[in-house]
Simulated assay, not measured.
Amino acid sequence: MRAHRLAKGWLQKQLGKEVALDNTAISHFEKGSHIPRRDVTLRIDKALDADGAIFKLRDELDDNPDAKWLQRFLKEYARATTIHHITDFTPAVLETVEHTRLALEAGLPLYGGDLESKVAFRAELCEIMLRPDPPRFQVILGGSGSPHPDG
């Protein structure tokens, strides 16, 4: 992203203005500490006339097991003593491998990325819960369409 921005002669502030973002967000994206949503990536790609190059890179970074944000997330998750989860779906750490694969495969057209990398990341999350001293896991599972938690 930085190379495309500099080739255009823009400052981070100029790119931010063009895509309705703060220059701080642009800085985070360029450093790789944050991954922009797909819609934001499309706006950036278009503004920088990158012909899809930035959008393609976004999916590669999002699924890269070495991505800074993923490593930071796993580190925090691994050192947690309690994990609170509120969802309408089965939490990833409670899914079977088969369910994980089917759910992620169904989401590929929307979210993109590499299925095997996504499955591997989920497996790392599950390993944390299977260690001898796992964090306490608390979940509020809301029913579909129900305003009240089911359990």
Score class of each variant (00 low, 15 high):
residue 40 V to A: 08
residue 117 S to H: 14
residue 35 I to K: 01
residue 50 A to E: 00
residue 140 I to H: 12
residue 57 L to W: 04
residue 46 K to N: 14
residue 11 L to D: 08
residue 9 G to L: 00
residue 98 E to K: 01
residue 45 D to S: 03
residue 7 A to N: 15
residue 54 I to H: 01
residue 89 F to H: 12
residue 22 D to Y: 00
residue 33 S to V: 14
residue 67 A to G: 04
residue 127 E to M: 11
residue 55 F to Y: 12
residue 140 I to S: 13
residue 59 D to T: 12
residue 31 K to M: 12
residue 140 I to M: 11
residue 71 Q to W: 03
residue 17 K to M: 13
residue 70 L to A: 02
residue 126 C to F: 08
residue 2 R to H: 03
residue 84 H to Q: 07
residue 64 N to I: 03
residue 136 R to F: 10
residue 69 W to L: 06
residue 132 P to K: 04
residue 102 L to W: 13
residue 31 K to N: 13
residue 16 G to R: 02
residue 145 G to Y: 07
residue 123 A to K: 08
residue 91 P to H: 03
residue 45 D to E: 05
residue 28 H to N: 08
residue 23 N to F: 08
residue 130 L to R: 15
residue 91 P to E: 13
residue 122 R to W: 07
residue 24 T to H: 08
residue 93 V to W: 15
residue 44 I to D: 01
residue 140 I to L: 15
residue 140 I to K: 12
residue 21 L to G: 01
residue 126 C to M: 13
residue 104 L to C: 12
residue 85 H to F: 12
residue 96 T to Y: 11
residue 5 R to G: 00
residue 51 D to F: 09
residue 119 V to P: 03
residue 3 A to Q: 15
residue 12 Q to Y: 00
residue 34 H to W: 11
residue 98 E to V: 05
residue 14 Q to K: 02
residue 14 Q to I: 00
residue 80 A to V: 03
residue 1 M to F: 02
residue 126 C to L: 11
residue 79 R to D: 13
residue 119 V to G: 02
residue 10 W to S: 02
residue 3 A to W: 14
residue 40 V to F: 08
residue 12 Q to I: 00
residue 10 W to I: 04
residue 21 L to Y: 05
residue 6 L to Y: 10
residue 62 D to I: 07
residue 31 K to D: 10
residue 61 L to C: 11
residue 60 E to V: 11
residue 138 Q to D: 11
residue 121 F to D: 09
residue 78 A to N: 14
residue 144 S to V: 13
residue 46 K to I: 12
residue 148 H to P: 07
residue 137 F to C: 04
